[in-house]
Design a protein around this nucleic acid. Structure first.
Lengths: 207, 207
DNA sequence: CCTACCGATCGGTAGG
DNA sequence: CCTACCGATCGGTAGG
């Protein structure tokens, strides 16, 4: 115990840097967060960070890949086991929106990426998650329910778009208006989507 | 001509600062843009800027209020004159998406606001556009077509959400996948929306 | 509206 | 020769 595994120590430092940077980036944005803050939060010196990352942007890349919303969203979607499309969409929506409102900062990572880096790291991220996403699209298409003729990829895209549309319009509404709409807004969004993609019945709320 | 109108000169300087800052903020983000850059682009010194704005954030507020997407979107939507809901949605969508792809930076202002300021200026912006938006919602609801029972505000919100969902998912897709989906993706998104909000017929593409 | 400058802090690197 | 890290400081730039 006097001679700890050096490699493990290094991995631990790296993990602490990523975790500290993640918290700070979300709270303050990328440019408002200094290397000093990251190093202080991670419990090592500024110089020490550069043994793990060549520069600040490399830290962002590690944070982005390790903490992007999909890492939370995918397991959530996989845990939904309704046999019908309608049930799957309703359950997914309630899970996702609960998660998004509990952690309203989740999509901020994507916004920072878009604002600060022009989205240049997104293709790499996309490659990593594409197979899983395609699989999800196929799972969705195989469930019971008469889908209108919609290509799998577009179906998947619109499914994800459902949450973006709800979340972004929610962010942009002042508290007051949000209350006026009530919690039915989400149900209505889901209904619109289900009426939009399904052909005939199966749209009832029977999850 | 030796004694130009001072107030006009001041207004002109202010306008040049806002325009210069707008270009730079979009291109580089807020924190990557220095007061020096803005002053150089606007053709005056750093100190001079502080005769027009108390600080850098005040410049952002002026840019945000003057250049936000609604300023472009609202006139566009008002110019659409189809008598049916379906026609209105289809025409609006084609106009908006054309405009958004021609100026892919339009929504970036919103993202910067969210990332750098936590969205704290949005309520002010919202107050300014809310009456117009409500009017638009009513116009939409009065057009021909059997709407399912959806509250006006939620209908308007979902209508705006349609574009967010399309635009955000487009940003997040690498060029390659976007091409695979083809240009029908937008048409499919619109169809899903129309099937979602309309009760029975009138969904045909007859704009 | 300018020149000149401030306290502080930035991302990154020196030698050991 | 490696790793992980230190105290101190680099040249420049931030908002004001």
């Amino acid at each position: 115990m006097d001679q700890p595994n050096i490699s493990k120590k290094a991995q631990n430092s790296r993990a602490r840097i990523v975790e500290a940077a993640y918290q700070l980036f979300l709270r303050q944005g990328y440019h408002r967060t200094s290397m000093r803050q990251i190093s202080a939060e991670a419990g090592l010196t500024v110089g020490a960070i550069y043994n793990h990352f060549v520069n600040k942007e490399a830290i962002w890349e590690a944070v982005f890949m390790a903490k992007h919303p999909y890492r939370e969203i995918m397991p959530l979607l996989k845990s939904v086991d309704s046999p019908t499309i309608a049930g799957f969409v309703r359950q997914s929506a309630s899970h996702l929106v609960t998660e998004l409102s509990r952690r309203s900062d989740l999509l901020n990572l994507m916004f920072i990426e878009l604002v600060e880096f022009g989205g240049k790291h997104i293709p790499v991220l996309f490659q990593a998650i594409f197979p899983e996403a395609v699989q999800l699209g196929e799972t969705l298409a195989r469930k019971a329910g008469n889908l209108r003729p919609i290509p799998n990829l577009v179906l998947l895209r619109s499914f994800m778009g459902l949450f973006f549309s709800y979340y972004i319009t929610e962010i942009m509404l002042p508290e007051e208006i949000r209350r006026q709409m009530g919690s039915e807004a989400l149900d209505t969004f889901i209904d619109i989507y289900l009426y939009g993609v399904l052909d005939e019945p199966m749209r009832e709320r029977n999850d």
